[in-house]
Every structure is written in structure tokens, then in C-alpha cells.
Simulated scan of single mutants.
Amino acid sequence: MGKEAHGTIPLVRLSRAVDGLPEQPLGDAGLVTWSVRGEMGKSGLLLGRPLLHVHVQANPVVVCQRCNAPFAYPVDSEVLLQLVKSEADLDDDTSYGDQSDEDDEDEEGKGFVSNLPEKVVGSHHFDLLAQIEDELILSVPYVPKHDVCPGAQANAGEASPEEPAVKRPSPFAVLEQLKHKD
């Protein structure tokens, strides 16, 4: 452990990640930058356990679900993974020691321990690019939206809510006139 690797890969090569998305840009705008660092856990429940720090950066083009316009969604995700020897170890909660559900609270008693890493099966045939693609998929929201849609900004600039663009007569004005004719 203690080794590092990093690189880039075109988004279009990660077919599961871009499935259902609009056409992705080519060149630098369409690259996924990744880095991975391995180490052994140094303290607590992770002492002596093999860990991977995975960092993924990309800007996949997604479609805003409010305005239907494509936009680049920035992804900058870091995750800590624990490597286990077999699939049976994935669900094995005893690998963190003898803890019952009542003991899963942190020192301050504010909630469940949530800083334990996700477990993945590690082997000599570990597919690092599949793990990077998984992290990218998990980082893109299921329903992507602009913070503020570009069309909403343009519409807001055209007419302020206090002053309507066109003064229309009230539809009840005609009724008011009929009422006073008697």
C-alpha cells in the first residue's frame, strides 16, 4: 500500500456514466481526472485495514429538468473505500469489531457513525476504472437542475413583478360599466 496513481480518461469511454446523457464534449472539457491513493488504516476501527482514497473530477453535460437546457455539471468527489477479501466480507459488520446497534453512536452521542468507508472487494484484478466510473455516476444527481436557469434570468430582466409589461384592463371593468347603466 502507500502507492498512488492518477490520470485522465475521456467521458465518452465511460459508457455507463454517459448512458442517457446528451453528447459529451471532446477535448479537455470532456475529460475525467482521477487520482487514487492506497494506505493502511492508522487508527481506530480501520487500524491495519487496506484503504483507497479515490478523487474524481469531471464536468459531464446533463439536461436541466426545469428548463430542458443542457449544462455542464461540475463533479469534484472524494471517497474513502475499504478493500475486503471477498463478497462475504461486504456485509460483515463484525469486521469493525464487536458493536451492536446501540453502540453505533459516535463519542458525542449525536448519531450513527457515518465516517466508516464503503467496502469494496479488492483483488489482483481490481477494476479501478469501473470504480472511478461508479463514483462519477453516484456524484451526478438523478434530477439535475441549474441553480438558476438561464431563461429565468432573462425573463426576470424583461419585466419586474411590480410593473407588468402591458397594462391590461380588468375583465370585470365591462361588468362594472353595465352595473352603473341602470
Rank of each mutant, 00 (worst) to 15 (best):
P10E: 03
P10Q: 10
P10W: 04
P10M: 02
P10G: 11
L11P: 05
L11Y: 01
V12W: 04
L14G: 12
S15G: 09
S15Q: 15
R16E: 14
R16M: 04
A17N: 04
A17W: 11
A17H: 14
V18Y: 02
D19G: 02
G20I: 08
G20F: 13
G20L: 08
G20M: 04
L21C: 08
L21G: 12
L21V: 05
P22C: 09
P22H: 04
P22I: 13
E23H: 05
E23S: 14
E23V: 09
E23L: 10
Q24E: 08
P25Q: 12
P25A: 05
L26Y: 00
L26V: 07
L26K: 14
G27K: 11
G27V: 14
G27H: 11
G27C: 13
D28C: 00
D28W: 00
A29P: 00
A29L: 10
G30S: 07
G30Q: 09
L31D: 08
L31G: 04
L31V: 03
V32L: 07
V32I: 07
T33Y: 00
T33P: 00
T33A: 14
T33I: 04
T33S: 15
W34L: 00
W34A: 07
S35C: 03
S35V: 09
V36Y: 02
V36M: 14
V36T: 00
V36S: 09
V36A: 15
V36I: 12
R37G: 10
R37S: 13
R37P: 00
R37H: 11
E39I: 01
M40G: 02
M40I: 05
M40Q: 10
G41P: 13
G41T: 11
K42L: 10
S43G: 13
S43D: 12
S43M: 00
S43A: 15
S43V: 05
G44N: 01
G44R: 04
G44Q: 04
G44P: 01
G44M: 04
G44F: 04
L46N: 07
L46T: 09
L46H: 03
L46V: 07
G48E: 03
G48P: 04
G48I: 06
G48H: 02
R49M: 07
R49I: 03
R49Y: 03
P50R: 05
P50Y: 07
P50H: 08
P50F: 08
L52M: 03
H53K: 14
H53S: 10
V54L: 15
V54P: 00
V54K: 07
H55R: 15
H55I: 01
V56D: 09
V56G: 04
V56Y: 08
Q57Y: 01
Q57A: 11
Q57I: 13
A58L: 03
A58K: 01
A58Y: 02
N59E: 15
P60A: 03
P60I: 11
V61W: 06
V61E: 14
V62L: 09
V63Y: 07
V63A: 08
C64K: 03
C64W: 06
Q65A: 10
Q65K: 14
Q65R: 15
Q65M: 09
